[in-house]
Design a protein around this nucleic acid. Sequence first.
RNA 1: GCGCCCGUAGCUCAGAGGAUAGAGCAUCGGCCUUCUAAGCCGAGGGUCGCAGGUUCGAUUCCUGCCGGGCGCGCCA
Length: 591
Amino acid sequence: MEARSLKSQLEQLLQQAVNGLVGGLLPTAPDASQISVERTRDTQHGDFASNVAMRLAKAARRNPRELAQAIAAALPANALIERTEVAGAGFINFYLAAGAYGTEVARVFELGAAYGQSSRGRNQSIIIEFVSANPTGPLHVAHGRHAAYGATLANLLRAAGHRVHREFYVNDAGRQMDILAVSLWLRYLELSGEAVAFPAGGYQGAYLKDIAAELRDSVGAGLVRAAAAVVAGLPADEAEGGDKDGYVDALIARARELLGESAFQEVLGRARDRLLGNMRTDLEDFGVVYDRWYSEMSLATSGALDRALARLRQQGHLYQKDGATWFRASEFGDEKDRVVVRENGLTTYFASDIAYHLDKRERGFDLLIDVLGSGHHGYVARVRGGLAAMGEPPDSLEVPMIQVVTLFRGGEQLQMSKRSGQFVTLRELRAEVGNDACRFFFLMRGHEQPLDFDLDLATARTNENPVYYVQYAHARASSVMKQLQARGLTFERAEGLANVKLLTGELEQVLLNRIAAFTEIIETAAANRTPQTLVFYLRELANGFHSYYNSERFIVAESPLRNARLALVGAAQQVIRNGLTLLGVSAPESM
RNA sequence: GCGCCCGUAGCUCAGAGGAUAGAGCAUCGGCCUUCUAAGCCGAGGGUCGCAGGUUCGAUUCCUGCCGGGCGCGCCA
C-alpha cells in the first residue's frame, strides 16, 4: 500500500479535478505547486481547504468562486470526501467522510511503529553531514545541538521517503593536528618531570592530561626529551610579547626534530584516535549514529584531492599569485577568490572541502545537506562555487545554519570558552539533564534561533518542564491499558476499530484530527528542515490527549464504546511514541 | 564597509501568501471519594519594529530605514 497523508491524497484528487478542466475553463495546465490543500484552522471551514481557485482565477480570467464550483464538481469519485463547499473569496472547503478517520486509526494499528512514514520523498538520495567537530577536544553543548538537529532531520527525511546517509567529516588533516600532537606531548613531558611552558596557542583542556597519562602508561619514558633541549632557541610566546602562532609552529618543528616523524605521528595518532573515540561514544550515548566517518586525510591519500584540483586546473579555474594557487571563486558567486594551495605547498581546508563535496556527488547523492554553525555562513558560497566549477549544480548543496546555545543556571549565563578549556561538554550536559530533556530542548526552538538552554527548567521534575508533558501523555495511555488488565478486561481492537464512528464528541474529533495529521507533519518538518514542527505538533497532540483524558472515562461498561475509546487512546499513544522516537526521546510506560 | 540571520502577547518562542494571528511560562479564577493533578478548564494580555511597494488578499514576498546578533585568514 502506498503511504500517503490525507493531505497528499486530497491534493492528488484536486490535481485530477484541475486537470479535467484544462482546455475548458483553464487555458493551460497549472504548475503542481499551485494545487495545494491545507488543514483549516477553524472547523467551520471543514477539515481541509484549498485556495487553488483563487490562485488560478486570474490566468483563467474567471471569477474565483465560479472556478471553485467547477473544480469541486470535477473532483473524481472517492471515499475520502463527504462534501465540499465554496466559501469566502473562493476557498474550496473539504469535509471528510465519517469513515476517513476510522480508516486512519486502523492504519495506526496496522502500521505500528511505521505509521507516519510516507513515500513523498520519492527515494531521493540525500547525504547529511553534521557535527563534524575537529578531533582536538571533547564535544561541547553546541555540538549537541548540531547532533540533535542533524540526527532528527535525518530521521524525518527517512520517514518522509528519502534515502538518507549520515556522515561525520573528520578534520584529521592540517596544522591543528600538529598542534594537538605537540599539546599532548608537552602534557606527557610535564608528567615526566620535563615541564615546558604550555603555549597559548595549544589545546589547554584538561582532557589532554588524561590522555598523556595513558600515553605514559603505554610507552613509558621512550618519548621523554630534556625540557632544555625542547625550548632551546625558541621564539617568545604570546605571554612574553611574542607571536603565539610562531611559537607553536617552532614547537611543532622542534618536536618533529627531537622525536622523529614516526614517533611524532604516533603521538598525533594517539590523541586523534582517543578524541574521536570519545566523540563516537558521546554521540552514540546521545542516540546519534553515523553511516560513515569520512577522513579528510583520506582525500589526500586516495588521490581525490589531486584529482579535484587537476580538474579545476584543466577547466582554467585556477591561477598562481603570490606563490599560492587560487581558485576563481568570484566567478562562481563567491565574493572573492580563494587559496587552495598555500605558498608553503600545503593545500587548504577549502581545497579538501571541494574534493569532499565532489566526492559526495560522485557517490551518487542527489542532495548534499551540510549542517553548519551560523558562523560559517560565509563558507556556503565558496563551496557552492566549487561545485559549480566542477559542473555540479550549486543548489545540490543545502546548508541549514544552527545558531548558538547559551546555558543558564539560576538566571545566570554560564561562561563557555573553548580557548581556555573551560566549557561545558555535551557529556556533562547529558549527565545533568538526561538525554530526553537534552534532545527535546535542543529541538524546541527553530534552529536559526539562538537557544537559551535553561538548566533549571530542563532538570525540573515539574509541570513547567515541556519534555514531561508529552511523555506523560504516553505514560498515561499505558496506564489506561494496565488498568484495563487489572479489571480483567482486554482491548478488543476489531470491535474498537469497527466503532470509531461512536467517537463523535468534540474532544474525540479533535484528537482524531490531530492523530491523522501526523504523516503530513513529518512531510512538512522534513521538507522545511524544521524538526521543531514535530515538537510543536507533539505538544498539541499531547494536549488533545490530556484534555480527552480529563473529560471522559475510557473504561466504560458498554463494550463497543469502551473499545472505540481504547482504540483512540492506543492510536494516540502509538503516534506519540513514533514522534518521540523520531526526536530521539524515550516514550516511558510509566512516570 | 560588505555579507548572513533575527525584531510577533509582560517573558521565551511557533506561524512563511489566505478566512477571527497561536503556544508555553508568568498573572488571575475554577477542577482530584472515579483510568497517574508531571494533568484539565476559563479570563485578561497584540499597531506582527517603522515606511513604502507587489497582490483579489501581506504578519508572511520585494525595497528602504531603525534596532539586535554573527561572520568577513595562504586557520580549520
